[in-house]
Design a protein around this nucleic acid. Structure first.
Length: 421
RNA sequence: CCCCCAGUGCAU
């Protein structure tokens, strides 16, 4: 039984759900009533595959067969409900489960998580209190969930309060706790506090991971403190920290945005030198950085390097490359890619159209720009000020004032305010 | 066998 069940678990994790189901059904045939462990595993398998209804049906079948579902089965179902945001049903299930099994700390965490995600912070606090009333202690995961959600809801001080109070409750912050809060503070520009937290992390004997360094670097750069950003990178290296690809991509983007083009290029080389294969984001960042530095001509070569490497472009990458082509006199190439992306299941966005329309407008190909403008409208894309500005600017520049005026009026009718005068 | 799975890229 146990062997079967672990096999089912392995199959589920390997995305071979069909085989898992087959095995499970065989168990049901042989044994009439599989053990609770088997049900747990199978319910979880359905859940992580997104087949929530099947998970629920299996729970019902388990009950019918007289096997009492364990808390773990219920937790899996609650997780499913959480992923669908069905808070009410989750509450109902929570009450219902008490007949069969005692909720454990995970049960409460799952509830708290979904309430936080639904923005129902007050309810989340209530559940946390109920947890204590039930004689269970919130653990580090409970805190992590709340800290993260509070930060994202811009309730930083409250997040800090919970963080500061956790030690008293006998739970120690871990890397995720620190990471969430350091990033939460940094994103809101409170980088010095974030850095102090980083120091506390060190004092507490924790080893900061790449997530923490990435967040610090990005946020210091974003508020214009380039030198501090660089220092943090060096500090990481000095401490023997190992950058991952996300960190290097982020750092490269920061460097480019700070105007250090050659350093940015060097970082791309370093990514390769460190044995990473640049991913679609690495290329997007590099190309974008070069475009902004006036080196849009290099898009062509990089685009082919990307393809050669087998890198699959996503919407943002297409947008970036298309912009690069537009800004290096290769508008036809941009058109071609516009078609390519449609064909590959990436519908052009308002940004895609924005790039091409602007590219065309800047070289006075206004009729084509206008055609794309109409095309975007016909596709139901919400046009924004950027698009209108490019067009108005273009028509105005060549003296087609009447048309510029009409477009301007259309923009006003949409309640968009011009930002270029 | 169940819960946080915290950090990167685009147009005027």
């Amino acid at each position: 039984d146990v062997t079967y069940t672990s096999m089912i678990g392995v199959l589920c994790k390997a995305n071979r759900l069909d085989e898992a189901i087959e095995l499970f059904e065989q168990m049901e045939l042989n044994k009439k009533v599989p053990c609770a462990y088997a049900y747990n595993t199978m319910i979880m398998g359905y859940g992580s595959a997104g087949r929530f209804d099947d998970a629920y049906k299996l729970l019902e079948r388990q009950k019918e067969k007289g096997c009492i579902p364990s808390v773990i089965a219920y937790n899996s179902i609650l997780t499913c409900l959480g992923k669908k945001g069905k808070v009410d049903e989750a509450y109902k299930m929570f009450d219902e489960m008490k007949k069969d099994a005692e909720p454990n700390p995970s049960t409460y965490n799952i509830l708290i998580d979904m309430l936080c995600k639904a923005g129902m912070l007050e309810d989340a606090y209530q559940v946390r209190d109920a947890m204590e009333v039930a004689g269970l202690f919130p653990n580090v995961l409970t805190v992590n969930i709340m800290v993260d959600r509070l930060c994202k809801a811009n309730k930083l001080d409250e997040a800090c309060r919970i963080f500061e109070g956790m030690d008293k409750k006998g739970c120690t912050p871990n890397a995720v706790t620190f990471g969430s809060l350091i990033d939460g503070l940094g994103r809101r520009g409170r980088v010095d506090e974030a850095y102090r937290l980083f120091e506390r992390m060190l004092d507490a004997g924790q080893v900061p991971n790449a997530v923490v360094y990435t967040s610090l670097i990005r946020n210091f750069f974003r508020c214009g403190r380039k030198d501090d950003g660089h220092k943090i990178y060096k500090e990481m290296v000095r401490r023997g920290g190992c950058p991952d690809l996300t960190l290097l991509n982020t750092y490269m983007d920061c460097i480019f945005k700070g105007g250090e083009v050659e350093k940015g290029r060097a970082l791309f080389e370093e990514i390769k030198a460190r044995g990473f294969v640049p991913d679609v984001r690495s290329y997007s960042i590099l190309i974008h950085g070069l475009i902004k530095a006036g080196c849009a001509r290099e898009t062509y070569e990089l685009f082919y390097a990307m393809k050669e490497q087998g890198c699959v472009l996503d919407t943002l990458a297409y947008n970036t490359v298309i912009d690069g082509f537009c800004k290096s006199g290769k508008v036809n190439k941009a058109y071609q890619l516009l078609e390519e992306m449609k064909g590959k299941g990436h519908p052009p966005t308002v940004v895609t159209y924005g790039s091409v329309i602007d590219g065309l407008a800047k070289i006075d190909r206004l009729d084509e720009a206008y055609m794309l403008f109409e095309e975007a409208k016909s596709k139901g894309i919400e046009l924004n000020v950027v698009i209108y500005s490019s067009l108005i600017d273009g028509f105005g520049k060549v003296g087609r004032i009447d048309e510029a005026y009409l477009i301007m009026e259309e923009m006003m009718q949409k309640d968009l305010t011009p930002n270029v005068y």
